Simulated assay, not measured.
Amino acid sequence: MVREPEGTAEVGTPGVDAVPGASGELGSGILRVFGRQLKRFRLRAGLDRAEFGGRTGYSTATIAAYEQGRRVPPSRFIDAADELLDAGGVLQEMKDEVARAQYPAFFRDAARLEAEAVELWVYGTHAVPGLLQTGEYMRAVFEMWRPLLNEETVQQRVAARLARQDVFARKPAPLVSFVIDESVLRRPLGGRSVMRGQLEQLLLVGEFRNVEIQVMPLNREDNAGVDGPFTVLHGDGGDQVAYLEAQGRSTMVTERTEVRGIVSRYGIIRAQALTPRESLAFIEKSLGEL
């Protein structure tokens, strides 16, 4: 029987060890379930945490955090652990749910729908939409949050947001449309160097065949998007859901009449914005002015 090293009791300090976005809880349900299963398979294999960590490339403290549901294990760890512990796919089957636990609680449902959507429409008014952000821009945004996020949470949220961008590599590729308010492009979050990299990213992604980026100019006298940002997610079966987010709270709009109104609004916003070609030219000009 494996005896656990001393000093690995299940303790944690909210705000430091807590799962990001879990409102101070020491782990979401799926993380606790995954952690218990991981520990069960590790003990069955006759490995203590130090031995297991050595074989997977993680510290004893990190293994303890995974088993206690206090940290979100990356997919590569889950794959390695499942193979090393001969778990028969049990750990890997939880990989998608575990991955979603890295998102703030209010965004997890939207993250699942986003990963499955065949079409996405995004209207951004405060910052560059997350799917288009560079890692440096993400970090700048998260470091501006108040109350302050601890460094581990910032790192995990950056990693989670970067992982969402795999949507562009999906096959078949979803159709993705963005309309970004000009004020977002004029706001150098993180400094000029960060913003320069961000504008270059927009130009790069804007050339993807399945992506259209449009800019809503500040000089427009008509703007159907004055109510704020939103996202429309289109499912494979034709279902449409709208996602609204503000001040750490979110709303999933599913009522058909209300969703239809938001869909119509996005169509008007697109018509009022610059065309995709004009928008890329505008972004390129803004890059030259930095």
Rank of each mutant, 00 (worst) to 15 (best):
Q165N: 03
V226G: 02
A273W: 00
Q214S: 10
P172M: 09
G29Q: 11
A105F: 14
P217D: 05
P174E: 05
R55L: 15
G237D: 14
I63D: 02
E152M: 08
Y58C: 05
T125E: 14
Y123Q: 04
M195P: 12
W121I: 01
Q240P: 00
L204G: 00
E83P: 03
D86C: 06
I283Y: 07
A140R: 01
V167P: 02
E10P: 08
Q37D: 13
S286I: 08
N223G: 01
G29N: 09
V11E: 12
A140I: 04
Y123W: 08
E212V: 00
S286H: 10
R3L: 05
R186Y: 00
H234T: 08
D236G: 04
V184Y: 01
K95I: 07
E200Q: 12
L38I: 03
V141Y: 02
L148I: 07
P5D: 09
E278T: 00
F77Y: 11
A99M: 12
L287D: 06
N150L: 00
G235W: 06
G235I: 03
P188V: 05
G89C: 10
A50K: 15
F168L: 09
A87N: 02
R36K: 13
L199F: 10
T8G: 02
T257V: 14
A87M: 06
E255R: 15
L203A: 02
R108Q: 14
G238E: 05
S250V: 04
W121Q: 14
T275S: 15
Q102H: 08
A242E: 07
M94S: 01
L244P: 07
I262M: 03
S177M: 09
E136A: 15
P5L: 05
M1H: 12
F282C: 05
G288E: 06
S59M: 09
R3T: 14
S286C: 11
T257N: 11
E136T: 11
F106V: 12
R139Q: 13
S183D: 07
R42I: 04
M195N: 09
L199S: 10
T13V: 11
Q214C: 12
E25I: 00
K285C: 04
A224D: 12
R108K: 06
A159E: 09
E136S: 15
T257G: 11
L218A: 12
